[in-house]
Simulated assay, not measured.
Amino acid sequence: MEGAEPLSILDQRVLASCADHREAFASADPFPHVVIDDFFAPEFAAALLDTFPAFERGNAVGDDGKVGGKSTLERVRALGPAYRRLDDAIQSPAFLRLIGQITGIDGLLYDPWYLGGGTHENRHGMSLDPHVDFNYHPSERWHRRLNLIVYLNQEWDAAWGGNLELFRDPHEDRRPTRSVVPRFNRCVIFETSERSWHAFDRIALPAGREDLTRRSVALYFYSHERPAEETAPRHTTYYVKRQLPEHLVEGHVLDGHDVTELTRLLQERDAHIRMLYAENTALRKAQDKGIGGHLLYLAKRAYVRFRR
């Protein structure tokens, strides 16, 4: 059948249950999403894992400009036949139509640059704070609409952390509305919007298993248009630091674990504040440079003197 070949990377049960997935996506809480187990055909999922890139091959520089415990690689076609087949499939009209049918979003666009996407790998100790993603493609006038993540961890336990967390409002909620264990060949598709708060909790592997890593393939999809009521001014990824653990209430006696956790949370918050100040300083320096910066300086100077 014409157009069906790209869908051969999927387990055929995904196609057969399309209507069920659409219903689950539309009715999900706290925002539209669906979890689909056994997403890829078994042999294809195994091939993706077998040729998953070494941590050192990806980019491990974080938002703070320092090398950390997360590695990403956007040039997936360089990873061999399985990833070239994946790339060919996800840009096909058949695949885009299928994802559109599941999510109810028409006119989905594939990102040939995988900006922010591709392969993701996280080591022991890593976590991801609640955030909403950047809402426009960095180089195109496209609205970001969907994240599609497939996990490639053959051995993973919920107690080890690294669970995808979906929040109603992380400014208020200490716990996520839903937590998803990143098990092998499990796919999560969720709408990206101004309320699609997501994160993953700290990876804490058991003694002797710290060599394991949390692996996934992240695919982002866009559209030319978006309903006006869902459209917001362009912004970058917006992070919120986590609330205090639920057990820290009046009358609780701190133990060593509590002190360690509080120290870590304060260190992370301080690092976040330092990063924001550094970004603000960099923006002001850029603003002050050149003719435009000089004209802005003169305008501010005139305004201040006029006010006196």
Rank of each mutant, 00 (worst) to 15 (best):
D201R: 04
N185L: 14
N135S: 04
F221P: 02
L254M: 14
R186H: 09
T192R: 00
W142P: 02
E155C: 11
R145P: 00
A204L: 06
A159I: 03
E155M: 09
D201G: 05
A218V: 15
L146I: 12
G161R: 01
H143I: 01
E155P: 00
D133P: 03
T192C: 03
N163Q: 06
E210G: 14
V181F: 03
R226L: 13
D133R: 00
S196M: 08
V259A: 10
D173T: 02
R178I: 11
L164R: 00
F221M: 12
E155I: 12
D157Q: 15
Y238K: 09
E250F: 09
V259Y: 02
E140L: 10
L205C: 02
L248S: 00
Y222V: 03
W142Y: 13
L205H: 01
I203V: 15
A158Q: 13
F167W: 15
L164F: 12
A158W: 04
G256V: 08
V188C: 07
R226K: 14
L219D: 07
N185G: 13
H143Y: 12
T177V: 15
D133G: 06
E225G: 08
S216Q: 04
F221S: 00
A232Q: 12
H171I: 10
E191Y: 10
S196E: 07
P130D: 11
R174I: 09
N163H: 03
L152M: 08
D201H: 05
M126P: 00
S139N: 13
L146C: 03
G161M: 05
H235L: 13
H143F: 13
G161D: 05
P170D: 09
L128I: 04
V180C: 05
A199C: 10
R215W: 05
F184Y: 15
L166C: 04
I189Y: 01
G162M: 05
G208K: 10
G208Y: 11
S179Y: 02
H171M: 13
A159D: 11
A207H: 12
H143E: 06
L152P: 03
Q243P: 02
H137R: 00
E191W: 07
M126A: 12
Y151L: 08
P138N: 09
P138C: 11
A232T: 07
D129C: 11
H247Q: 14
C187S: 06
H224E: 14
N135D: 05
F190K: 01
R186N: 09
